[in-house]
Amino acid sequence: MTALLSVTSLHRQFGGLTAVRDLSFDVAEGEILGVIGPNGAGKTTAINLVSGVIPPTSGRVEFRGEDVTGLPPHRLVGRGIVRTFQSTTVYGDRTVRENGMRGAYLGLYPGFFATLFDTAHARRMRAEATAVVDELLDWLGLTEVAEDKAGSLPYGHQKTLGMIIALASRPRLIMLDEPVAGLGGGDADHVRDTIKRVRGRGITVIVIDHNMRFMSGLCDRVLVMHQGARLAVGTPQQVLADPAVIEAYLGKRHAALAGH
């Protein structure tokens, strides 16, 4: 298996505080990798580093064999890396379809003068983007609300729409930041199925969460982070049996997790 994404010795400091230290991991094409760890373990910072939202202090990120370290988010979207956010996942004042169209922006952008004069090329690109978005809306069951304002959707649907915005750019790798935060059990199961279906399309997935039960039913492998560093990586079963993980992370919370 060749690695789609390869992260080597990633390091990020904020002032005196090290948020991520010496983080290395690979993601194989078609894999679902979970990133897990308690609050403050550096999960979101790690995603921010890989997705270009903040540049790393040092280290290297390779995507499909090319160095993409420190590229800004819009460039990474062009390369096929896209991410979602924990909050502000949608443009609340706009229709669901318009949200999707904005996600497809990069793929459909025909160039400044082409769009200004609405050339045949521009119209063709727009039609293609509309087709991509409509297909995604249909595929994830939002066609019926396509003309509704995104802000008026139930929270679970907003999360789905957030994913559609990301998928509309036709990525190779999608990173999901706490996709089930704030959702009830039923909705969480639905999101899990959705993520599996996304992978079914050949898209590689990195998903962040702190809920081990949710993650173990979803991920092929799990990366456990602790205090900004990598504590363990392996299948959910391997990780759960790792003494270091149990001691550092699960030890105190084991009872709570069992009851989850």
Partner: peptide
């Protein structure tokens, strides 16, 4: 469309590929 996206959520727009 990109201009409106940037105004409404700069972060989301940036991560949708808008420079």
């Amino acid at each position: 469309r990109a201009i409106d996206a940037v105004r409404e959520s700069e972060r989301l727009a940036h991560c949708s590929g808008i420079p």
